[in-house]
């Protein structure tokens, strides 16, 4: 077996199919076809591909929200069986509980983990502070902007101190400026916490800006794995976009996305 540090993710020959009723007929949909990849401890890997390529399914399997039809998934050397506190999920639309304040939303995961009393509140507050929302602790989700909601979502996932942070297109619904500042903050937080991050996106720039490696997916399989030779810490992301390495990496991913075994259809 792979000698794994705690944040190491290993996906071995994983297939996932489910049946879907279309026009009164059951069709088997192959969401993943023997997908294998590894994510090293403290690495940021982005999964990119068109809708329906299986990237979100892969992430949900890592989280334990879906099972595999075939293959093995391990996190930190342990086989994934259902959800666990070694993984934290950041949802596409934050999915804060609307009846709780920002602070209570962060406390929710910690409470589930069994934390109580002063430690609970202080820990939650520390993570809200980490995402820059200490002042908004008592606001409810409807009083938060989209970007703020997603910050709370990140704080909630980070608070349980998972080994791996799994993020499902978390910035997809945000405006360009908010998205950019959150990308920068995510990199800062990762630099401080050294979390392994698996990040699903359909945004080319985002994939390159965040990743150490990019996994390009198409139709349930891995099309290509691309190394991003940009240095870490990444510093000013705006300036980074102007560099030749960024352009080169971006072009590589673009080519991989467009080099279709079967023509991309929408």
């Amino acid at each position: 077996m792979v000698q794994a540090s705690s944040g190491h993710v290993s996906v071995m020959d994983v297939s996932k199919s489910f049946s879907l009723k279309v026009d009164n007929e059951y069709q088997t949909i192959q969401a993943l076809k023997s997908v294998s990849f590894e994510v090293r401890d403290s690495e940021i890997v982005t999964l990119i591909g068109p809708s329906g390529c299986g990237k979100t399914t892969a992430l949900r399997i890592l989280m334990g929200l879906e099972t595999t039809t075939r293959g093995r998934v391990t996190v930190g050397g342990k086989a994934v069986k259902g959800c666990g506190y070694d993984r934290g999920l950041v949802f596409q639309h934050a999915e804060l509980l609307p009846w709780l304040t920002a602070l209570q939303n962060v406390m929710f995961g910690l409470e589930m983990k069994g934390m109580r009393g002063r430690e609970l509140k202080e820990t939650a507050m520390r993570y809200l502070d980490l995402v820059g929302l200490a002042d908004a602790a008592n606001r409810r989700p409807y009083q938060l902007s989209g970007g703020m909601k997603q910050r709370v979502g990140i704080a909630r996932a980070l608070a349980i101190d998972p080994e791996v942070l799994l993020m499902d297109e978390p910035f997809g619904a945000l405006d360009a400026q908010t998205r950019e500042s959150l990308q920068g903050e995510l990199l800062d937080i990762q630099a401080r916490t050294k979390k392994t991050i698996v990040f699903v996106t359909h945004d080319l720039d985002e994939a390159v800006l965040l990743a150490d490696r990019i996994i390009v997916m198409r139709a349930g399989s891995i099309q290509e794995v691309i190394d991003v030779p940009l240095p870490r810490p990444r510093g000013d992301l705006g300036a980074l976009r102007g560099t030749a390495q960024f352009g080169e990496a971006r072009y590589q991913v673009w080519k991989a996305l467009h080099r279709a075994p079967d023509a991309a259809s929408h």
């Binding site: 929200l65 259902g82 589930m112």
Partner: peptide, 8 residues
């Protein structure tokens, strides 16, 4: 799924 992801 929020609940599930925190093993509730």
């Amino acid at each position: 799924e929020v609940g599930k992801s925190f093993v509730a």
